[in-house]
Amino acid sequence: MEIIVCLKQVVDPELPARDFAIDPATRRQVREGRPLVISTYDENALEVALQLKDRVGGKVTALTLGPQGVVGDAIRLALAMGADEAVAVDDDHGVGLLGVEKARVLAAAIRRIGRFDLVLCGCESADWVERVVGPLLAEALAAACVTFVSRIELRNGALLVRRMADEGFHQLEVRLPAVLSVTSDETNRPRLPKVKDIMTARRKPVQVWPMADLSGTSPTGMRRASRSATWRCLSGRRAASSSRVMPPYRSPR
């Protein structure tokens, strides 16, 4: 089973509110000096991939997109957790890309990686929460699509997945190749790498591809779906909720 897991680096969403700021020029969150982490559900996606590999064999490739200077941490963690190799699309300007634009680049990278049975990603990113990358990748790669998947198993060559749904859960049978977006549950808590794994990870292959190369070779797939000028982000303003701060008081005992 060839599995590609897409990982996104985001500013730690649990950063204290006082460290949260919107850059008025880019209208995105200020990243400088803030700790970066792998977006929450992307780690669950990697865990699901690793568990499947443990059961049926195969290879897990971690794929990430971001400025080369900082994506190293995400790559190292993914390799230490158990990914076999990694591809980083180097992108100095891509931090502010919307989901449609990111999906276009990721689809091109996946085509260049070549063969795959499964592509996994988080069900949403911790920062922009668009929930579009999985479904857009599925369309661009002509693959099956299921979102908010918490468990997968291979039974008699068929992929069975459990999707979190409004009314409970759906059990689906899915044809390969497929793109699945993953949500968390008690079965896919990300493993903690051991010291030995961290050492081993250093010897695993990492490829860095400049984004410009990719968009040059990229088939038209995603481009036709989304022109980057389609949307104009006008403003990111602080939500009103932060204005109604009240100091906690001690309960009378």
Partner: peptide
């Protein structure tokens, strides 16, 4: 966006 810390306006 950003866990409800901001609202993005899109046109």
């Amino acid at each position: 966006v950003y866990g409800g810390r901001a609202l993005a306006t899109l046109v």
